[in-house]
Design a protein around this nucleic acid. Structure first.
Length: 298
DNA sequence: AAATCCACCAACCGCTATAAT
DNA sequence: CATTATAGCGGTTGGTGGATT
C-alpha cells in the first residue's frame, strides 16, 4: 500500500552541507534539471534525504538567489506584506525575486520584528472597554498608523473569528482563514480603513499584485459560478519599484482587478486588497528607524 | 587573553495538503 | 477508497563568529 519510502532514514547524513555535496547537487540538477526529489540523492550520489536536497537547493544553491543585505524597498515590501498577511513567508518570497522564504523569515525575526517591537511600546493605543470599537492609535505618520492599525486589527479579528468559527462549526479548520481578510474588511475594522482612505485620499494608485493562492481561491472566487481568469504574474517588487519611480497607475495591475468577476463580492475584496496595499502617505517605510518622528510622545 | 553574551542564519523538525499506489 | 509518501510551508534550533566584559 502507498508509496515506497524516499530514503533509508538511518543512512542519511545531517548537518551542514560540504562544498563537495553542493557540487554534486548542482551538477546533477544542471544535467538533469529539477524533478523528483525522492530519487535525486541516490542518483546524484548524495547521502542526504530528498527533503534536505530540496531545501539546500531552494535556499542556497539556486542560481537566481540574491545574496546580500535587503534593500529599503525590499524591507518595505516585507513589512507591508507581513502587515497584511502575517507570516506568509513563501508568498513574500514569491514577491521578492531572488529571496527565499527562509531568508525573509530570518530577516524578519532578527531585524524587522525587533525594530517594530522597539517602537511598539511607544504607541498609544486608546482602546475602549468594548473590543468592537475601532482602535485609536496616535501616530503622526499615516503610514505607521495604517500599518499598526492593520496589524492590531488583524490579530484581533483572527482571534474573534476563530472564536466564532468554533461556535458555529467546531470542525472548521484553518482552511477558512483567508476569508478573514474579507470578513475583516467588511467589519467595523474595515470601516476604520475606509475612513482612513477617505481622510487621506489616494496618494498613489494601487499596486495590487497577484494575491496568494488561498485568497484567490477562497476569498475572491468564492462564488463557484464565476470562473477566474488567469492573473498576469506580477511580482510585488516590480510594482513597488514602479510606485517609487512614477507613482502612476499600473495598467497591468488594473487588469488584475478587471479580470475579477463583476460581482459585489469580488469588488469589495479587490478594493480591500487595493487599499491594504496602499499606505496612505506615500513613503511606506518612513516609520522604520525613525521612531521619534512618527509617534506622538505624551 | 579568556569567558561570556549576542546576533545571525543554515538546517532541521513537525505539520498539512496533495499525490501516488 | 484507504493508506502512505512527498512536497511545501512555518517554527525552531544549534553552530559560528563578532562584540563586550
Amino acid at each position: 500500500m502507498g508509496r515506497v519510502p524516499c530514503c533509508d532514514k538511518d543512512e542519511v547524513k545531517k548537518g551542514p552541507w560540504t562544498p563537495e555535496e553542493d557540487q554534486l547537487l548542482v551538477q546533477y540538477i544542471q544535467k538533469h534539471g529539477l524533478g523528483c526529489w525522492r530519487s535525486l540523492p541516490k542518483n546524484a550520489g548524495l547521502l542526504r534525504c530528498g527533503k534536505s536536497c530540496r531545501l539546500r537547493w531552494t535556499n542556497y544553491l539556486r542560481p537566481d538567489i540574491k545574496r546580500g543585505p535587503f534593500s529599503p524597498a525590499e524591507e518595505a515590501t516585507i513589512v507591508h506584506l507581513h502587515g497584511m498577511l502575517g507570516n506568509k513567508w513563501a508568498y513574500m518570497a514569491s514577491q521578492l525575486p531572488g529571496r527565499t522564504d527562509n531568508e525573509i523569515k530570518n530577516f524578519w525575526n532578527t531585524h524587522l520584528k525587533k525594530r517594530l517591537t522597539s517602537i511598539g511600546p511607544k504607541l498609544q493605543i486608546n482602546q475602549s472597554s468594548s473590543s468592537s470599537e475601532p482602535i485609536n492609535i496616535k501616530c503622526k505618520s499615516p503610514s505607521a498608523r495604517h500599518m499598526v492599525q492593520w496589524e492590531s486589527a488583524r490579530v484581533e479579528a483572527e482571534a474573534r473569528l476563530s472564536k466564532q468559527s468554533l461556535l458555529i462549526k467546531p470542525t472548521s479548520t484553518a482552511k477558512s482563514r483567508p476569508d478573514i481578510f474579507l470578513q475583516l474588511w467588511k467589519s467595523e475594522v474595515g470601516e476604520t480603513f475606509r475612513i482612513t482612505e477617505e481622510k487621506y485620499g489616494k496618494t498613489c494608485e494601487s499596486l495590487v499584485s497577484d494575491t496568494p493562492p488561498s485568497i484567490k481561491n477562497e476569498s475572491v472566487f468564492l462564488d463557484d459560478t464565476v470562473s477566474p481568469k488567469p492573473f498576469k504574474t506580477t511580482t510585488f517588487m516590480d510594482t513597488t519599484q514602479e510606485q517609487e519611480d512614477t507613482c502612476k497607475p499600473n495598467e497591468d495591475v488594473m487588469t488584475v482587478s478587471d479580470s475579477i468577476g463583476s460581482n459585489e463580492f469580488a469588488d469589495s475584496t479587490d478594493t480591500a486588497l487595493k487599499l491594504l496595499l496602499d499606505f496612505p502617505g506615500g513613503n511606506d517605510m518612513e516609520f522604520i528607524g525613525e521612531e521619534s518622528e512618527f509617534f506622538q510622545l505624551p
